[in-house]
């Protein structure tokens, strides 16, 4: 850790001024801000867009204001980043290119097929391209920029450009449907609606119920929190085991 700025993922925040899609720029906490016991007055500005942009959002609808109780549970930037990384790891799969395709089945043909076969694009690239295409169709955003950096970013925050969102979300009241069955015409109209985009089809946010936490060591309820790193443990015994790791991490 010679230069803390170069290793901090948030030091690049000021460069976002070049991105026209980011309406509000806010400085994120940079260096380590350990959560300390006690309290402090903070300015309540309601919804924090820079924070929601980092969170693994549902992408379909704008996040509503968090209730007061949940706001106190808001994660620190570092915890949020760690959570995003963990979710990404849990969804990871053996898509690495370290396993070579046997020579017998290597691409030999030419033309368009060869382009597809030898494509190095992964899922995140295709998703970014698709979102850029939809945004361009909607006329709001400039055509896709073919740069690796942008692709990676939009792979994380997939909340942009979801036209043609679900019509009947919510209770479905007021869409003028019949109580009994549908006419053939209505069914036809229903089936003719085009598919949603990948992000728009994602499940909605969980309900109001408080999130459950678990002991990181044994998997029982996480009844206590480590003051150093915020990890949850169930009791003294697991805390002792956790401390071994925790000291190693933050020594």
């Amino acid at each position: 850790m010679s230069n803390p700025l170069s290793t901090n993922p948030f030091c690049s925040v000021p460069t976002t001024t070049h991105r026209p899609t980011m309406p509000q720029i806010e400085l994120l906490p940079t260096t380590t801000n350990p959560s300390v016991p006690g309290w402090a007055y903070v300015l309540d500005r309601g919804l924090d867009p820079s924070r929601t942009a980092l969170a693994p959002t549902t992408g379909r609808r704008p996040r509503t204001l968090l209730p007061a109780a949940a706001a106190s549970e808001q994660l620190s930037t570092r915890q949020q980043a760690a959570l995003t990384r963990r979710l990404h790891d849990l969804d990871r799969d053996g898509t690495g290119r370290e396993v070579e395709v046997p020579a017998k089945w290597k691409a030999r043909t030419g033309g368009v097929v060869r382009r597809i076969l030898l494509s190095e694009k992964g899922w995140s690239h295709h998703l970014a391209d698709e979102e850029a295409r939809i945004a361009a169709l909607a006329g709001g955003a400039p055509p896709p920029v073919e740069s690796g950096k942008r692709r990676v970013r939009s792979g994380i925050s997939s909340g942009v450009g979801t036209p043609g969102g679900p019509v009947g979300s919510g209770t479905g009241a007021g869409t003028g449907e019949l109580e009994e069955g549908l006419t053939a015409q209505e069914v036809e109209r229903l089936l003719a609606v085009p598919a949603l985009s990948f992000s728009a089809a994602r499940a909605g946010p969980p309900g109001e119920r408080a999130a459950r936490t678990f002991c990181e060591i044994c998997g029982y309820w996480g009844r206590a929190r480590c003051l150093k790193c915020g990890a949850r443990v169930c009791g003294l015994e697991c805390k002792e085991q956790h401390d071994v790791e925790c000291r190693r991490k933050f020594a």
Binding site: P56, A211, R212
Partner: peptide
């Protein structure tokens, strides 16, 4: 949400 995923 047990692993922090924001989906129902």
């Amino acid at each position: 949400s047990d692993v922090g995923m924001k989906e129902a």
